[in-house]
Every structure is written in structure tokens, then in C-alpha cells.
């Protein structure tokens, strides 16, 4: 139990995918305008991350490794994750249309999300066992969700702020704010 908590906390704070590893920046900047969408995207990414690990880990250990074709990892993982996201999209459309509507164009974005791919690959390269891998993915997803929510809060305040110089409005000030938010996460990874 303690181990699991440790894995999750490490993935959420110290190895936060967005703010420490700077992966998955595209949805981080693209979907963080509104709190609701940001949270939805975060949940979706968490869900896909866990599912992706659950699918890719067995493929690596029971298909690729026995056949000595571990070098196909990247291409196979991309294939599997892409299919998985499609599957999730179809499922969401059928069972949770509300969430599907709000995620809409962002779901395909997850397909090519480097954070998701990196979680799957990192679990293999770190030689993590299956269950800890799942918890690591869960932690990574929660970390992503946390970053999204934090940044959505920052951005709503940024949008209300009229003191921002004209040249910095929009994306420039957003990037600057993202840098400052990620600075705050440095405290967790300092040894």
C-alpha cells in the first residue's frame, strides 16, 4: 500500500508529465481555457493513460519480447494507443454523449499525445511490473489533471487581467504563466 502511494505521489508531483517533463503541452495549452474542459480533458487523458498501459504492457512482454522485436515498441504502441483512443471515442459517444460532446475534437488530440506514449514507454524502460505500471500511469494521469486544473485557474485570472501589455496578450503571457507554474513544481523534484 505504501509503495503504491509512493508511486502515485512520485508520478503526480516529482515527475509531473506536463510541468516537470514538459510532455503533453499541446492539450495543456489548447484546452486549459475553461476549467470544465480542462478537467474533462485531464480525466480523459488519465483514463487513456491507464488503458494504454494496460494494453501495451502485455503486448511488450508477451508479444514483442518473446519474438525479439522490442525495437518495434514505438510503432506498435502508437498503433495500439490510436486504436484505443478511437475505441474510447466510440464508447463515449454511445454511453456518455455529454462528455463526448465536450471533448469533441480533443479526443483525437490524445491519440498523438506524447505524454500518453511516454507513460507507456517509460513503464517498459523502467522495467516496472504490471500493477505498479498501472498505478504509475494513474499517477501520471492525475498529475496531468492537476496541471490542467491549476493552469485553467491561472488562465481564467489571466483573461480577467487587463493590465497585461498588449504585445503579451494571448499566447505569450500564457506561455510565461506556464513557465512560472512549472517553476512551482520544481520544489518537488529538488533533491
Amino acid at each position: 500500500m505504501k509503495e503504491i502511494l509512493l508511486i502515485i505521489f512520485a508520478a503526480v508531483f516529482a515527475n509531473n508529465y506536463v510541468l516537470t517533463k514538459t510532455l503533453g503541452i499541446c492539450p495543456f495549452l489548447g484546452v486549459s481555457k475553461q476549467f470544465q474542459q480542462a478537467a474533462g480533458m485531464g480525466v480523459a487523458v488519465t483514463f487513456v493513460m491507464v488503458l494504454a498501459t494496460a494494453a501495451t504492457w502485455p503486448i511488450q512482454y508477451y508479444v514483442l519480447n518473446p519474438l525479439n522485436i522490442g525495437y518495434l515498441q514505438t510503432i506498435v504502441f502508437i498503433l495500439v494507443i490510436a486504436a484505443l483512443v478511437q475505441f474510447v471515442e466510440i464508447t463515449l459517444k454511445r454511453f456518455i454523449p455529454g462528455l463526448h460532446k465536450s471533448l469533441g475534437i480533443y479526443l483525437p488530440l490524445i491519440t498523438t499525445n506524447c505524454a500518453v506514449l511516454d507513460v507507456a514507454i517509460a513503464n517498459i524502460t523502467n522495467e516496472t511490473a504490471f500493477l505498479p505500471s498501472l498505478f504509475n500511469s494513474l499517477g501520471a494521469g492525475i498529475g496531468f489533471l492537476l496541471a490542467m486544473i491549476l493552469f485553467a485557474g491561472v488562465r481564467t485570472r489571466l483573461d480577467q487581467n487587463t493590465n497585461v501589455p498588449k504585445a503579451f496578450r494571448g499566447l505569450p503571457i500564457t506561455l510565461a504563466a506556464a513557465a512560472i507554474v512549472s517553476l512551482s513544481f520544481m520544489a518537488f523534484s529538488l533533491k
Partner: peptide, 8 residues
């Protein structure tokens, strides 16, 4: 390799 990727 080709067969595995195609199969998947």
C-alpha cells in the same frame, strides 16, 4: 516483425 505489426 511485419506479420506482428500487421496482426496487431
Amino acid at each position: 516483425a511485419a506479420l506482428v505489426v500487421t496482426g496487431i
